[in-house]
């Protein structure tokens, strides 16, 4: 990563969301050169409604509502290619995480509810057991999206290979896990 450098700019030009990102994450989107290497390398840019470079532009322009309802927030794979190729070292996956978390907390117009649901189920599994059980998680997910046969042929293959386990070990000292999640709900109250 290249060294950070301060850019002098009139305060008024920085949008509120760009400012929040700078203050909360220490990432200054003003350093974006608009070169587009992030989009060029992105694993799934072709499937995004807004490509990574445009998302940074939306941050600069302060289009907060637009940002929270982006489909790309949910289909981003967090593969870390954009941050590695950015000549200004802008951590785009971290910005995506930040915006996704805010969209989740604000319960905004989320296009990929199923992906959000999957994450929620996984987190509740971790909260209750400390570790996840892939099999139980899949069943819960299928129930949640009301499609009992989602991934059925894939699941059948795994079952025949003896890879689906209904009982899997958990973290014993679960009391040390749950306080971490209380933090999460505290934030919910604030949002």
């Amino acid at each position: 990563m290249i060294e950070t450098y301060a850019i002098r700019r009139p305060e008024a030009q920085e949008s509120p969301i760009a400012r929040q990102i700078r203050e909360d994450l220490g990432i200054d989107v003003a350093r974006c050169l608009e070169c587009g290497k992030c989009t060029g390398g992105c694993s799934y840019a072709a499937g995004f409604d807004y490509t990574p470079r445009k998302i940074i532009q939306l941050v600069k322009l302060g289009e907060f509502d637009k940002l929270l309802s982006l489909d790309a927030l949910w289909t981003c794979l967090s593969c870390q290619l954009c941050v590695d190729r950015c000549p200004s070292g802008i951590n785009i996956p971290r910005i995506m995480d930040y915006l996704r978390a805010r969209a989740h907390r604000a319960n905004s117009n989320i296009t990929h509810k199923n992906i959000e649901k999957f994450y929620e189920i996984m987190l509740s599994d971790i909260k209750n057991r400390g570790r996840i059980s892939e099999t139980i998680m899949m069943i819960k997910y299928n129930l949640a999206i009301k499609n009992l046969f989602a991934n059925a042929s894939f699941g059948k293959k795994l079952f025949l290979k003896g890879k689906l386990k209904f009982f899997s070990p958990r973290t014993h000292n679960i009391k040390t896990i749950q306080p971490l999640f209380r933090r999460l709900s505290e934030k919910d109250g604030q949002a």
């Binding site: 967090s78 971290r94 995480d97 930040y98 996704r100 978390a101 989740h104 959000e116 999957f118 994450y119 929620e120 996984m122 987190l123 599994d125 971790i126 400390g130 570790r131 996840i132 973290t171 014993h172 000292n173 040390t176 896990i177 971490l180 999640f181 933090r183 999460l184 934030k187």
Partner: peptide, 24 residues
């Protein structure tokens, strides 16, 4: 007595939670 690292759900919805799980 390790716990799940939270990939990818934890960092997707709450960065601090992801950090906390792995600090443990």
């Amino acid at each position: 007595d390790w716990n799940c690292c939270g990939a990818t759900a934890a960092h997707s919805l709450d960065h601090d939670l992801s950090l906390a799980l792995n600090v443990r």
